[in-house]
């Protein structure tokens, strides 16, 4: 780098550039927040859905599955599982997991959920499925 471009110029561009782009990012984030209510279906969030999200978290489902493509890649996407299995099918699947796993197969734990808990989880997954994701995933297999 030539002598004309000094270290203090480089430093000023660093501070100025960082502040500028951080503010731009904040502005975009702010705009996103004004648009989100139409897309994230927050008006539909019930206490049951909130309970479902909590169950999703405290059982660390994200440790094997993806949700809207984020999480682990060991087990199927669940943002659209309702499309694949339906509500009853999803509940039946979760309930039917054998305690000791399936020999030789990737196994999901038996969580011993109550009916209320299963309903809450399914309500949460149904809610996630209703979010406007710009048409992701490409097909029902997730």
């Amino acid at each position: 780098m030539s002598g004309a471009f000094t270290k203090s110029m480089a430093r000023n561009i660093f501070y100025g550039g960082t502040v500028f782009f951080f503010l731009l990012f904040l502005a975009l984030s702010f705009d996103t927040h004004t648009q989100l209510p139409k897309r994230d279906m927050r008006a539909n969030i019930t206490p049951q859905i909130a309970e479902g999200k909590k169950l999703w978290e405290v059982n660390n489902c994200i440790g094997c599955h993806t949700l809207l493509g984020e999480g682990a890649y060991f087990a199927p996407e669940l943002g659209n599982v309702i499309v694949r299995y339906g509500e009853e099918g999803t509940k039946a699947f979760i309930q039917a997991r054998p305690k000791e796993g399936i020999p030789g197969r990737r196994s999901m734990p038996q969580f011993n959920f109550t009916d209320d808990q299963l309903n809450a989880i399914v309500a949460f997954l149904k809610h996630v499925n209703s979010i406007n994701t710009n048409n992701w995933p490409p097909n029902s297999q997730g």
Partner: peptide, 8 residues
């Protein structure tokens, strides 16, 4: 990361 998670 904001392509498919419900963001504009």
């Amino acid at each position: 990361h904001y392509f498919w998670i419900g963001t504009p």
